[in-house]
Each structure stands twice: as C-alpha cells, then as structure tokens.
C-alpha cells in the first residue's frame, strides 16, 4: 500500500516539475514525444552485447535534465524503484551465456555479463527518457501530442479523465484502507470478504461519480465531443530540436563514439 501511495505523491511531483518554464518545457509536446521515441528505438536497436556504443546516448538525458532544471536525485530514485523486472530477467543471462567474450587482465568476462550490463544500460536510458518526457511536458501535453499525431480522441479524452480522477479516487481508497486498518485486529478484517465489500463499495461510489460527472458535462453543453483550445505551435525551434537530436542519435547509432574516442586516445598515448 505504501508503495502505491508514495507513487501517487510522485505523480504529483512529476506534474509540478512539468509546470516549469524552460526552453525544453516550452517546446511543443509533439517535438519531445517524437524525439524521445526515436531515441528509444535507436537505443534498443543495438546488439545484445553492445555496451560502449550505448554510453554516448547518455548525452541526451544529461542535456535535457540540466536545461530543464530537473532534480537528478528524484529521477534516479524513481529509476531504482522500477529496476527489479529488467534486473530479474537480465540477471539470468550470466547463467545461460557463459561464453567468454574478452579478458580484462586475468578475468574472463562472459557474454552473459556483458549482455546483462547492456540490458541495465538500456533500461536506464529508456526509462529515464520516459520520465524526463513527462517531467518536461506534463500529461496533458503528452495527450495533446498523441492526439495530434493521430491517436483517437475517445482514447485521449479518457486518458485525461483518468489522470484527473486518479487523485480523487486514490484519496477515497486510502481513507477506506485507513478506516479498515483502524478496526482490524490480529489479521481479522483484512481478508477476502471484507476486501470484496470495500472494493465493491468503492466501485459503486465510482459509478455514481461517473454519472454525476456526466451530468456536469451535460449541464455545460456536452454532446459527446470534448473541445479544448490548443495553444501549441510546431515552429522552427521544434523543427530544429527534433531534427538535430535525431541526427545525433543516428550518428551515435552507426558510429561507436566511445570506440573511436578510446582508439584515438590510445594511439595518442603511444
């Protein structure tokens, strides 16, 4: 329970971050959504044993984090929080893939360890970008971008309503849970039957609320379409942002910058 509750506080703080006013925040959401998707595709398209070529990709989150003035610690913490699944699956690689790929001094490094590290790197890159996207764009912005890109209106409207009532319903649920905890002793009262009643109650209340919301919409002229005023513009800034970063990603994708730089340094040292 505490996990979910804190997670909801974090939704609030991500929304607060999205209220910032920097160059990145001001960009049209579409530019950010498209660039992020290209970034993710580039990152995951690497071979499973690739490590060094992935590292230069950190430049994108690093630049965005600083230009958008986001707190690094907060995002790192969120990253750690969701790491288990990728870790759980990836950690099997060293067991199943024991071919030695290369040696560092006397220690042989197996393919499994390399691909495990690669999975964790991919994980850091892709997840941190998803978080940065929402922290600079706001949920509302992402929804608008999705709609402009072609997502059906029914779907985006529903996403907005979900986000709006998340907080209201989570508040209700947490009050129910507290009320139950205060009157449950020795594990009695937290079983299935009571659970069914509580969730059922919450569901009925939710259905009533949906009806009231529908009424409130109708009272203000709702006939099935939700109109919103769009204040975004895809201008030169957006165009350059998307184009320049996509170019960077493609270059990094096809030229292993780490390898080149390292080779250059070694040569220089000799």
């Amino acid at each position: 329970m505490s996990r979910i509750e804190t997670a909801f506080f974090e939704i609030g703080s991500l929304d607060t971050l999205a209220g910032g006013d920097t160059f990145v925040h001001r960009l049209d959401p579409r530019a950010k959504v498209v660039t992020t998707l290209i970034f993710i595709c580039c990152v995951v398209s690497f071979q499973k044993y690739q490590l060094s070529a992935l590292l230069p990709f950190f430049i994108f989150p690093a630049v965005l984090l600083t230009t958008a003035q986001l707190p690094v610690g907060f995002l790192l913490k969120k990253l750690l929080f969701v790491a288990p699944f990728a870790f759980f699956i990836g950690v099997f690689n060293p067991f199943f893939d024991q071919t030695i790929l290369f040696h560092v001094g006397p220690v042989g490094i197996s393919g499994g360890w390399v691909s495990f590290a690669s999975i964790m790197l991919r994980f850091c890159l892709t997840i941190s970008m998803a978080l940065i996207l929402i922290a600079t764009t706001s949920f509302n912005g992402v929804c608008m971008a999705l709609e402009k890109i072609g997502a059906p209106r029914v779907f985006t409207v529903q996403l907005l309503l979900l986000h709006r009532y998340l907080f209201v319903l989570v508040g209700e649920a947490s009050r129910l849970v507290k009320a139950r905890a205060l009157r449950s002793f020795n594990g009695r009262g937290t079983g299935m039957t009571v659970f069914g009643h509580i969730v059922g109650q919450l569901l009925l209340r939710t259905l009533d609320r949906a009806q009231r919301i529908h009424l409130a919409m109708q009272c203000r002229g709702f006939t099935g379409e939700i109109h919103q005023m769009r204040l975004f513009r895809f201008g030169w800034h957006e165009f350059f942002f998307t184009l320049a970063w996509s170019a960077v990603f493609l270059i990094l994708r096809f030229y292993n910058l780490s390898q080149l730089l390292g080779g250059f340094l070694l040569e220089f040292a000799q």
Binding site: Q158, L159, L161, V170, V177, L202, T206
Partner: peptide
C-alpha cells in the same frame, strides 16, 4: 475514464 482511475485506486486496497 473514471473506472480506469478506479483500477488504480482499487490496487491500493489489499487483502
């Protein structure tokens, strides 16, 4: 929309 939000809220209630 509201039922989707309900799914989140209901996940807070455990047994």
């Amino acid at each position: 929309g509201v039922l989707a939000a309900f799914i989140f809220a209901a996940q807070m209630i455990n047994f």
